[in-house]
Nucleic acid binder design. Structure first.
Lengths: 216, 216
DNA sequence: TAGATTGTTAATCGATTAACAATC
DNA sequence: TAGATTGTTAATCGATTAACAATC
């Protein structure tokens, strides 16, 4: 029973879109919104929006719609975006730096508490306020963190494919329960660790294949 | 009839994984591989691998398997990765720089022929051999390109969400047939332009929600 | 040959869409 | 009240998985 709550992944993936739309509406001073409206704006069917919103547990009122405040709160709560998630990031290349410098995920609770790289010329340098720590010192750093009553919940992997599994193993030892993997690798992980792969090549493949195989 | 060839998106998305595995096997000197082997390595069912490979038009031999050379060629051809795709990249923040500095997509045919930003302090600077051109000058640049017999086929959008639609419009005017959109926006585009959105927040949402809603 | 593997047709599963009753 | 909207059950659609025949 892997997914006892029966939450469709596609629905979860659509929630951030709704959230963005709702926050915009809220910023414009709106208080209430209907599925019909959301669906129109995003080019979907209203029934799909309704089903998706239902998984967050929120209920609307017939003829009226949903209270925006309540909906925003429910989505953020469902996604875990209203609490901070302590994370390590490993691999301070361009991609890793992009994530560290981008504010968007911080707004969703991402709290980077350790940045690592195995390149000695990078170690000691700062990236957006984070000092780069030698990868080899990760477990010592975790001990130190635990000593302060803190812990790490998530690992972000932005290293080349060949190094990804080794990094994942050490992140697991560090106690993470989730891994956000940007490397194009299928990771071997214990059951209690959730993994989400960012599919960049996959996305590129869909685009180029559609450009190529379009009718013709 | 949007998808006349009936090519499942999930299958297309799995092709890059197979390609990676096959190129590794090729590098090790192997000549032939079976679906059973591929499936084992990637933790899937062999029948799914077989169906996926079938969409590239390649056929295997019972008891033997597939010729790796042939398979690599067929996948690369199907994805359009054995030909160069001229592209503009707009938005030279960390994410844009990451894409420009990463060699992976070049190996898949991505050929950046123009890099743009609207920030005047960035314009004129170089990123990985590309001079940053003012966004306002894009259409003039296209004319110049066309004068040399070149054209642009793809646009990569790595600007903040608010600017994405404007950028998309100008890319369409520049003649792109495909857009690779990293901004969290639903773009309005003419029918002849294919769009693929990179789902970063969506991916983060799946991870955090699974970390949060795990049984419990 | 026997057995492993491909290719294909049928069954299952899950997500989307349609239909409709409930309700404010 | 009438009509818009929600919530839910049923039908459809597409992808995955199972079953099996073909073949080297």
């Amino acid at each position: 029973m892997i997914n006892p709550k029966n939450l469709p992944i596609p629905s979860i993936q659509r929630l951030p879109r709704y959230l963005r739309l709702l926050e915009e509406a809220k910023a414009r001073g709106e208080r209430v919104v209907s599925c019909t409206r959301i669906a129109e704006d995003l080019g979907q069917l209203s029934v799909q929006v309704r089903k998706d919103l239902a998984i967050t547990g929120v209920t609307g009122r017939p003829k009226v719609g949903y209270r925006i405040d309540e909906l925003v709160e429910a989505i953020r709560n469902f996604l875990g975006w209203n609490q901070t998630t302590n994370a390590f990031l490993v691999g301070v290349g361009n991609l890793g730096s992009a994530i560290l410098n981008y504010g968007g995920f911080v707004a969703h609770g991402l709290n980077v508490v350790g940045v690592f790289d195995s390149n000695p010329t990078l170690c000691g340098k700062m990236v957006n306020g984070h000092k780069i720590i030698p990868f080899a010192e990760m477990l010592d750093y975790v001990k130190m963190l635990n000593g302060y009553g803190a812990s790490v919940q998530m690992g972000v992997i932005t290293v080349p494919a060949v190094a990804a599994q080794e990094v994942a193993d050490k992140l697991v030892k560090s106690g993470v329960r989730g891994i956000w993997n940007y490397a194009p690798t299928v990771l071997e992980l214990p059951d209690h660790v959730v993994c989400e792969n960012v599919k960049l090549s996959e996305s590129f493949a869909v685009l180029t294949s559609r450009m190529r195989n379009r009718d013709s």
